[in-house]
Amino acid sequence: MPRAGLVPAVVTEAGAALADEVGFTRLSMGLVAERLGVKTPSLYKHVDGQADLAHRIAVLASDELGDAMGDAIQGRAGSEALAAAAQAMRTYVKEHPGRYAAINSARPGGPDDPFVAASRRALSALTAVLRGYGLPPEEEIHALRMLRSVLHGFVTLEVATGFRYDTDVDDSFAWLIDFIDHGLHATASATAADAPPPAAPHGAGPTP
């Protein structure tokens, strides 16, 4: 008989907590079973195995990260929204490195995979930030990829203690966000300047 109160969500939460504590690559079904006080075979009544557990953790983490960034940008736009979303992501990764690693290792299994919806939820906050800069639609995907790549690189290096110089990391992060902000404003301005002027109404002549 399955242990009372042991359901897939409980197993996933336990796995996520352990991933943060010991590292995602060291997570095992045996460690999760030990944490929950059951024998390892009992877990297979609730998850299909380690790969399934890892995927469930990725879904959970994507939802949590999406909520964190979405809440952070509420009532903000432009530079403030960018800084808030970036800091929310940084904080989440620092507090939940194992869960974030699960996100990066996950692969969507198809359009009905809950990871697909969870990933879109996380990306929607960054997309909302970028739309506040007035970028043309054809530039948004490039900007989104840039923003994800830069933030991911910074926070994963920080978590891995990859910054060795004495300069304050918070100052570097603020400098990074300011750099991105200026770049986005410059891109939006350049695009607007290159746009053709609106056509004059039919029949209108030159103004005196």
Rank of each mutant, 00 (worst) to 15 (best):
L130W: 06
S124H: 01
E138C: 07
E139S: 01
A125F: 02
P114Y: 14
S124V: 03
A117R: 15
S119L: 10
P114F: 14
T127E: 15
F115S: 00
L123Y: 07
V116E: 11
E139V: 09
V116L: 12
A128T: 15
P114L: 02
A117E: 10
S124F: 03
E140I: 05
T127W: 05
L135F: 12
L123D: 13
R131T: 12
V129N: 00
L123H: 05
G132P: 01
E140V: 10
Y133Q: 05
A117W: 12
A118P: 13
T127K: 07
P136G: 01
S119T: 06
L130T: 05
I141W: 13
R121F: 02
L135V: 05
A128V: 11
R121S: 11
S119E: 11
R121D: 07
R131V: 03
F115I: 03
H142V: 05
F115N: 05
R121E: 15
D113V: 06
H142E: 06
A117Q: 12
T127D: 13
R120I: 01
A122E: 07
L135G: 00
D113M: 09
I141P: 03
A128E: 11
D113E: 01
R120P: 00
P136Y: 14
F115E: 00
A122V: 09
T127G: 01
L126I: 04
L123A: 06
E138G: 12
E140G: 00
G132C: 10
R121K: 15
E138W: 15
I141S: 13
G132I: 05
R131D: 12
T127I: 08
A118C: 03
P114E: 04
V116R: 09
Y133R: 05
S119P: 00
P137D: 15
R120V: 00
S124P: 02
P137Q: 14
S119G: 08
E140H: 09
A125P: 06
P136F: 12
G134A: 09
G134V: 09
P114K: 04
A128G: 08
L135P: 00
R121H: 15
R131C: 07
R131Q: 15
S124R: 08
G134C: 10
S124Y: 08
L135D: 03
F115V: 03
L126P: 02
E138F: 12
I141C: 06
S124A: 13
P137S: 13
R121A: 05
S124K: 05
R121W: 06
V129H: 01
A122N: 12
A122I: 04
L126Q: 08
A118Y: 08
A125I: 06
R131F: 00
R121I: 01
A118D: 07
S124E: 10
G134N: 05
H142P: 02
H142R: 04
D113Q: 07
A125K: 08
G132L: 07
P137T: 10
R120K: 09
A118S: 03
A118G: 02
Y133F: 10
L126D: 01
Y133H: 06
A125D: 08
A125Y: 05
L126K: 01
A117K: 10
I141T: 13
Y133W: 12
V116M: 14
S124D: 15
Y133M: 09
P136T: 06
A118E: 09
D113A: 06
